[in-house]
Design a protein around this nucleic acid. Structure first.
Length: 257
DNA sequence: ATGCCCGGAACGTCCGGA
């Protein structure tokens, strides 16, 4: 079973790229972020024609996440618990093919310090609490998405230049590690501990893609039952090099049956 | 150099992204 995550940076602008990728990569489950549309604007028909069931948490202009699955799909929740006043569409949790999955679009948090950074850290605190509750279910869980966190300096092209960025701040990294310490495994690093320059995001600006100046911020976090089944994890650079590309590229993991 | 590039909303440029 192949589970992929991709921040598409607008599902409408990216639809041809997404359809091509779904055909080529053929993930069983795809977690999408930054749809930038309400649910009514989501291209259900085109994606369902490729054999996917779709669950969407939308929002006008910003955020928005989805779970696609070739298997029957049950939505568990479209909000991250812990703050009833939070109206940003950044979390969708579903159950499909025996796995609980969440599509996560964690707040960017810049500029830091500031209100947005406070919101990021609070959101991460809620994620830690919820991730802990999910472990108690004793299920295979995959929490995947755009975490907007570079876990270590090995995940940044220019650690000194990014040191004060919300993606690299010690508080962001500490809360990311809190999830790991609960018992989750980060799929890419556990299989590729020494691989360098394994980016998932390259800025549109400054020739970042051409110069391979990126960061690794899209992650798949696995509960113990899921981690026991992990056989592969790969960053697929191909979509980033295509015309009208998202600034992120997909990453996927393979779980044994 | 919070700009360089994008997408959305909207029709002016500004906001948000990371």
């Amino acid at each position: 079973m192949k589970i992929a995550t991709w921040n598409v940076n607008s599902i409408k602008a990216r639809l041809p790229n997404v359809l091509e990728w779904l055909k080529d990569a053929a993930p069983d489950i795809a977690l999408l972020q930054e749809l930038k549309t309400v649910e009514d604007g989501f291209p259900f028909m085109e994606i369902e024609e490729l054999g996917y069931n779709c669950a969407v948490a939308g929002q006008k202009s910003y955020n928005g996440v989805a779970v696609l699955s070739k298997h029957p799909l049950d939505v568990e929740t479209k909000v991250l618990p812990g703050d009833d006043s939070d109206e940003q569409a950044r979390y969708l949790e579903a159950f499909t093919n025996g796995v609980r999955v969440a599509s996560i679009y964690l707040p960017n948090g810049n500029p830091a310090p500031g209100d947005k950074f406070d919101y990021k850290l609070a959101w991460m605190g809620r994620l830690v609490d919820h991730a802990r509750e999910l472990l108690a279910l004793d299920e295979a869980v995959v929490l995947g998405g755009d975490y907007n966190v570079c876990p270590t300096d090995a995940d940044v092209c220019d650690p000194a230049g990014w040191a004060d960025d919300a993606l690299c701040r010690p508080q962001s990294r500490a809360r990311f590690r809190e999830v790991l310490w609960l018992g989750y495994t980060e799929a890419y690093r556990i299989l590729h501990p020494d691989t360098q320059r394994a980016w998932t995001f390259w800025d549109y600006q400054g020739g970042a893609w051409q110069n391979d100046n990126g960061v690794r911020i899209d992650h798949l976090l696995l509960s113990p039952h899921a981690a026991d089944r992990l056989v592969a994890c790969k960053i697929d650079r191909e979509p980033r090099g295509k015309p009208r590309a998202s600034d992120h590229t997909p990453i996927w993991c393979e779980l044994s049956p």
